[in-house]
Design a protein around this nucleic acid. Structure first.
Lengths: 150, 150
DNA sequence: GTTTGTGTTGACTTTAACGTAAAAAGGCGA
DNA sequence: TCGCCTTTTTACGTTAAAGTCAACACAAAC
């Protein structure tokens, strides 16, 4: 029993447009099945999409993401290919670790700015409502699966 | 005593082009002093540039980066502005934290792929040279400061 | 004094990642 | 069967972030 998603369901779930989904497909990043002309995305497609969007958030280009996703799916039997894949992996890891360092530095910088801010607010005798994250328990996305298998 | 850098020195240090530096300047992200028509970047400019490149690596647009850098430099006296700045800060922090989560997931995925790889290599009886990072003790960038103040 | 290396300005071009609009093809509820 | 809605295809437009190219400035080197 395959859950299938229509294009608009995915657009709603991930706040993207149909244009984007079709574009990703044209780039070879997705290849949903068809029922007639209509696109139907299964769980695997949806997972790939999540990977794509995660990649985008991290600043990777679609080309890089494509490359990356290919890595995930492949299990090359040939030793040479395996070695190459391992190299790619460690290269990717290096990139990710660099981003991680960058992130930590950025967060540190933010802390500094905030500290300065608080200092000045204290001088001015200003109170700042530290709204505790009570509201917004949402967190998860809804979007019911639909569309039965043909 | 201000260290000053010429445009090509910065391009070499950061592996970017002169076009890029001039573009950033046109966007208001940098404003090096001039000696005649020639641009001369000081330590502060260089630091800003580092911030810009860091932002880029993290996938921020130049507009966002510009915004971010502005935050760093400003110390608004007015309470309203302060409050607004605080909001921006927590917003930024949220973005960064999301990226951090994304990064961890990505690293985890990479680990999985690598594990699979190793498994298959073991099956095939392949040895993989885990080149320990002995070579490349470089790590830091060189680039001597140049150009005396006019 | 002219060549050479660097730097500058300005204009046009390119690439990625979509946005937008037009026209036509099913499906479906009244 | 009609109108409505979603979806699809095709095509052109747009924006950010530079790349590329031409023409000129200027200082030092020969």
């Amino acid at each position: 029993m395959q859950r299938l998603y229509t294009i608009t369901q995915l657009t709603q779930e991930f706040s993207i447009t149909t244009r984007t989904l079709r574009f990703y497909e044209a780039q070879g990043l997705l290849s949903p099945q068809r029922r007639g002309r209509q696109r139907l995305y299964n769980a695997a497609d949806r997972t790939r999409l999540k990977l794509i969007l995660r990649g985008k958030r991290l600043g990777f280009s679609l080309a890089e993401i494509s490359d990356l996703i290919e890595m995930y799916g492949k299990a090359p039997g040939e030793p040479g290919q395996l070695r190459l894949l391992m190299q790619k992996i460690s290269q990717r890891r290096a990139e990710l670790l660099e981003k991680q360092r960058d992130l930590e530095l950025s967060l540190k910088d933010l802390d500094d700015v905030e500290a300065g801010c608080r200092g000045r607010m204290a001088e001015l005798g200003i109170e700042f409502e530290e709204f505790s994250p009570e509201s917004e328990i949402d967190s998860g996305v809804s979007a019911e699966p639909v569309a039965d298998t043909a």
